[in-house]
Deep mutational scan, measured.
Amino acid sequence: MDPFVVLVLCLSCLLLLSIWRQSSGRGKLPPGPTPLPVIGNILQIDIKDVSKSLTNLSKIYGPVFTLYFGLERMVVLHGYEVVKEALIDLGEEFSGRGHFPLAERANRGFGIVFSNGKRWKEIRRFSLMTLRNFGMGKRSIEDRVQEEARCLVEELRKTKASPCDPTFILGCAPCNVICSIIFQKRFDYKDQQFLNLMEKLNENIRIVSTPWIQICNNFPTIIDYFPGTHNKLLKNLAFMESDILEKVKEHQESMDINNPRDFIDCFLIKMEKEKQNQQSEFTIENLVITAADLLGAGTETTSTTLRYALLLLLKHPEVTAKVQEEIERVIGRNRSPCMQDRGHMPYTDAVVHEVQRYIDLIPTSLPHAVTCDVKFRNYLIPKGTTILTSLTSVLHDNKEFPNPEMFDPRHFLDEGGNFKKSNYFMPFSAGKRICVGEGLARMELFLFLTFILQNFNLKSLIDPKDLDTTPVVNGFASVPPFYQLCFIPV
Results as ranks from 00 to 15, higher is better:
C10V: 15
C10N: 00
C10E: 00
I19T: 10
R21K: 13
G25C: 09
I42L: 15
I45W: 04
I60G: 05
Y61C: 01
V64M: 08
V82D: 03
K84V: 09
D89G: 09
L90C: 14
F94Q: 02
R97N: 02
A103P: 06
E104P: 08
R105L: 06
G109P: 04
F110S: 09
I112L: 14
R119I: 07
I123D: 01
M129W: 00
T130E: 05
R132K: 12
T159V: 08
P166T: 04
I169A: 09
A173M: 04
P174T: 14
C175S: 08
C175A: 13
I178M: 15
D191S: 09
D191R: 04
D191N: 12
I207A: 07
S209D: 06
W212M: 06
I213A: 11
N217H: 14
N217F: 09
F219N: 06
I222N: 03
T229I: 14
K232E: 07
K232P: 05
E241R: 14
S242D: 11
M255P: 04
D262G: 08
N277P: 07
Q278F: 11
E281S: 12
T283S: 10
N286L: 04
T290D: 00
L294I: 08
L306S: 02
A321R: 14
K322L: 12
V323N: 02
V330T: 10
P337Y: 01
P346D: 05
V352M: 10
R357L: 01
D360A: 13
C372G: 10
F376C: 03
Y379P: 00
K383Y: 04
G384H: 07
T386V: 11
L388T: 06
L388S: 01
T389A: 08
S393Q: 01
K399G: 14
N403P: 02
D408W: 04
E415W: 06
E415H: 09
N418L: 11
K421L: 12
F428Q: 02
S429R: 02
C435N: 01
R442W: 02
L445A: 05
L453Y: 03
Q454D: 02
T469N: 15
T470E: 13
N474G: 14
A477R: 15
P480V: 13
P480C: 14
